[in-house]
Structure formats: C-alpha cells, structure tokens
Design a protein around this nucleic acid. Structure first.
Lengths: 170, 170
DNA sequence: TAGACGTAGA
DNA sequence: TCTACGTCTA
C-alpha cells in the first residue's frame, strides 16, 4: 500500500526509457509510469485545484486514432462503458481524466503515452512506453453509439528516441 | 508472455518464505506462487489427464472458514458469481479447480495457501504466503443461495514456520 | 457501490 | 465469449 503512486510525477520516469515494455498494468503502476489499474487517464490534482494529466494508456479498446506517426487522437473516458455500446450510454463530460487532459493542454505540460501492442493471440501483447506528448487541442464529436465523446489530439515532442514499431507489431 | 507460469510447480517456491507478503495478484503470478489472475484455485494437468491443485488464494470473498488455526475450510468455485448471489446461480460442479483439489486429496500432494489479510480501508491489505496444506476431505452442502457448493477441508502440514497472524491483522 | 482502455483460460 | 476469490477512485 505504500506505492510509488503517492509520488506521481510529470515527465519521464527515471530509469524508464522509451521502448521499454511491460506485460501488466500493475507493473506500470508499481513503476510509476501509469498509476491506474484500469483507467486510461492518470492525473494529478494541483494545490490550486486544477488537474493535469500525467499519462495515458492506449490499449485499443476505444476508437483512438493511432499509428506509427507522431500524432495520436485519444478518446476521452466515460459514457460508453467498455466501449462496447452495452450498458448505460451517456455523453462524456469534461471531468476527471478528460478535464485533466484539457488542463495539460492549457498548461502545455507533457503527457506520458503508453501503447499496448496486441498480437494475434490474446496473450501476445505488450505495453510500451512511447515517451512524451503535448495535448494540442480537443473537440467533441458523436461516437459510434450516438453520444458525445471528447477527442484529444496529442503531438509527440520532437527529438525523442523513435519507437521501433516494427519490433512490436508482428 | 513468457511467464513463470509455464513452469508451474508443486510445493514451496524457491526464495519465497512463509510470511512473505505481496500487494497484487499479478505479483503472485509473476513469482509463480499462484499463477492465476482472478481464479482462486490454480492447478496442473498431469500427462495422465489428472489435475492437481498447486495453490489456492483465500481472499475473503467466499464463505471460507478461516482463522488463526491449522485448518481451513475452502469453498469450491463456480455457480455463485462473485459470491454475491447475483447473476446466474447454479450448483457447483466437480470440475476445474474443484476437481483438482479432489485430485490433490487423493494423491496427498500439498497445496500452497495464500491468505489475503484485509484491513479497515479497502487499500489496506496484503496477500501472505501461509505455506503448505494437505486436502483432508471434501463434501457438498447448500450455500446461502440454496445451491450446492463444495467445501474442502485443508490441514496445515506440521513443522512449518508459524504465521504471525497478529502482525497482519491490525 | 458503481464504474474504469484488466487478464487468462475454458 | 464468458467467467474468474481483481483493484482503485469517485
């Protein structure tokens, strides 16, 4: 219970390099890379009450726009349980992780991005640290289930080690 | 994905001592103490097709009969989803983990026991290795939801380091 | 108490 | 696809 989490931090985590891979969300949490078991967006609440995102995980469950490029469109959370369209559907609200990503944009504070690479077999996957991104902008649109969702455009900070996508996709 | 799991083993795990504690089920899996994320009963299938239990976790979610003694009554799995009485209720079947515990009894192969000690706060808990037990006998009875459940009586093998229960309960 | 980008195995 | 003694936060 005395987890690294209590010292959540922005930016790179000392000792963790871009391209480092992990098998379990629990590892990300212990290491401090992403201190949430299930939630895709982790954030810190500042003394002034404002929240800023520290890290996001793209695991492929949401309709994120992802690929071997330097930009990433990440869906907000809430409203569409499990992204399956089953359960109660609601418009997403600008709260919690969504609000934190907006805060990160306003303050221009970089967000760690962790990507899940999924192979053919369900057990064949990895979480890979992809480095720091800046939230460029965000907007609302109708999701596949007709409800409003947030979309955040993130841009990878230039000059960071390139991720070898081919190494993880096979 | 190359997990220790592929070398599941019976008996003590080298390097792990009675009283060692852990925070996450994922740790137990990585270490090889209990190679199941959620399931309470882990087992090995022998070449002859028979299954034997390697380890069980008592997390307090089932109506196990537990206490600082050298015996333990462990409920079988299945039939009562989440042990909440909600969802489909069925009689438990003598299959999977339940069948494996029966096998362990017949072959007198010791089973590792891991206990979850839960404090007042939900985050205040530990999984503690309690050593090796032998399945003494088992029976069926009606559970609180009217369905048949299995109960396994396990006896702690004498001569092992005593667990300091007071250390974990507070 | 519900809800969240969880994992593995049958 | 489903279920399984998950884990945290709001």
């Amino acid at each position: 219970t005395q987890c690294v989490n209590e010292n959540k931090q922005f930016g790179h985590i000392p000792g963790i390099r871009i391209g480092d891979s992990f098998l379990y969300r629990a590892e990300l949490k212990i290491i401090g890379l992403h201190c949430q078991f299930l939630n895709g967006i982790d954030y810190i609440k500042l003394p002034n009450g404002k929240t800023l995102a520290t890290s996001i995980v793209d695991s492929g469950r949401y309709a994120n726009d992802v690929g071997p490029s330097h930009t990433l469109i990440y869906c907000g959370h809430g409203g569409n349980p499990n992204a399956t369209g089953k359960g109660k559907l609601n418009d997403q609200k600008l709260e919690f992780g969504n609000l934190a990503l907006k805060g990160s944009m306003e303050e221009k504070v970089p967000v760690r991005v962790i990507r899940k690479f999924q192979g053919k077999n369900s057990q064949d996957y990895k979480y890979v640290y992809d480095g720091l991104y800046v939230v460029d902008t965000f907007w609302q649109e109708r999701g596949e289930f007709g409800k409003l969702i947030f979309k955040f455009l993130l841009k990878r900070i230039p000059g960071q080690l390139e991720l070898n996508w081919g190494k993880f996709l096979n």
